[in-house]
Amino acid sequence: MPDPLFRLRINFQKHDRLSLLSHLELVRAMERIIRRAQLPYAVSQGFNAHMRHAPGPALPVGTSGLNEFFDVWTTEYVTPKEVLARLRAASVVGVRMLGVKYVPANLRGLQATHVHEEYEMVLSIAGGVDETMAAKINTLLNDLIATGELKVVRKKKAKIYDLKSAVETAPNVSLVHGATNGESNIMIKLNLRSSDQGSVKPELLVMEALGNESPLMIKSITRTNLYSDED
């Protein structure tokens, strides 16, 4: 087996129904796309030989991603244009290949570098929303962020997130109008930063701020951007 010489960075979108895939399911789907595309992927040595790759930071189930990344090591050079064409032909509806480039093989991992996350959440309520509601949500969110921490209990284990470092800029809450039926929705834009402790799920942050009794329904969550300090 030749040494892996090249590291390809695949830039893609995960959207539509595939936003419902788990991180593990997405990784497997990407592996299968790469094999179908017949890229010269490198194989790890050892007991469980497998494709050498490194996915970007996980997207929560139900969240779309418009600027996602996936690294794979290869043993031969294929032009990025050719790689992209092959990946596109081998992909599935809901994984849209945007571009590929070669990056240095020894670069730090995506999960360590791509710590800046921008999210958009759309919330709705029966009967529609108004400016007052948007202002109230804005206040609730800012109040929570001002406390400096978010406590999440999952499977009886509590985890505390430091919101001072996790929330990069103040949230932006606005009214948006649905394209098809003209109904008003709330749009929340969040700029978050992940750390060694993991990343705050925007859904948890917003639901904690609004309270469990809130009649607002989440219509969609999208990670619109993911980037590193170097970008």
Binding site: D16, R17, L20, E25, R36, V61, G62, V92
Partner: peptide, 16 residues
């Protein structure tokens, strides 16, 4: 309802 049930990928179709 799909974000509230176990393994929603069971129900989404669109596989290769």
């Amino acid at each position: 309802h799909l974000t509230k049930v176990e393994r929603p990928s069971r129900y989404i179709n669109h596989e290769y």
